[in-house]
Amino acid sequence: MSRSRWLPNQHGAWAMLAVPFLAGTFLGHPRWAHLPLLAAWLLGYLAVYHAQQWLRLTRISRNPKAPRRHVRPAWVFGSAAAAFGLWSAAPRPWLLLAAACAAPFIAVNSLYAYANRERALLNGLAAVVPACGMLLVALRLGGGSWGAGVAPALACLLYFAGTVPYVKTMIRERNSAAYYRGSVAYHSLAVPLAAALSPWLAAPFALYLLRAALLPGRGLKVGVVGAVEVLCSLVLLGVVLGAF
Rank of each mutant, 00 (worst) to 15 (best):
C156S: 11
L111D: 13
G144T: 05
A131F: 15
L111C: 14
L157W: 08
E118W: 00
A120N: 01
A113H: 12
S145P: 12
M170W: 10
T169E: 13
V128A: 10
C132N: 12
A127M: 12
M134T: 14
P104W: 12
Y114L: 15
A120Q: 04
R140Y: 07
P152T: 10
L121A: 02
M170K: 14
S88N: 06
L122E: 14
F105G: 10
A120V: 02
C101Y: 06
A107G: 12
L95G: 02
V167R: 06
R119H: 10
V128H: 04
L135W: 09
G149M: 12
C156H: 12
P91D: 02
L154K: 00
R92S: 02
V129Q: 07
A100K: 15
L136Y: 08
A148H: 13
S110L: 10
W146I: 15
G124A: 03
F160M: 04
P130Y: 07
P104L: 12
V129M: 12
K168N: 08
A99Y: 00
A138K: 10
A155Y: 00
L136I: 08
R119N: 12
L157K: 05
V164Y: 01
A138F: 14
G142M: 09
A126K: 10
K168T: 07
A161I: 02
L122C: 12
A126G: 02
P104D: 13
L95V: 06
P93H: 03
G144C: 06
Y166W: 14
C156N: 09
F105R: 09
A131H: 10
A98R: 08
A100R: 14
L97M: 13
P104N: 11
R92A: 13
P165M: 00
W94C: 00
L157H: 05
L135Y: 09
Y114A: 15
N116K: 15
P165V: 03
C156P: 02
N123Y: 09
F160E: 04
L121M: 06
N109S: 15
A102F: 09
P93W: 01
V150I: 11
L141I: 07
G124M: 01
L157F: 11
C156L: 11
R92I: 02
V164G: 00
R92Q: 09
A115L: 14
T169G: 07
L95Y: 06
L141C: 05
G142V: 06
A89Q: 01
E118T: 04
R140I: 03
T169A: 05
W94G: 04
E118N: 09
A120T: 04
G147W: 08
G147A: 14
G149V: 03
A99K: 05
L111N: 11
C132A: 03
C101T: 15
Y159G: 11
L158V: 05
S145L: 03
F105N: 11
S88W: 04
K168W: 01
G162R: 02
F105S: 08
N116I: 11
A90Y: 14
S88R: 00
C132M: 01
A98V: 08
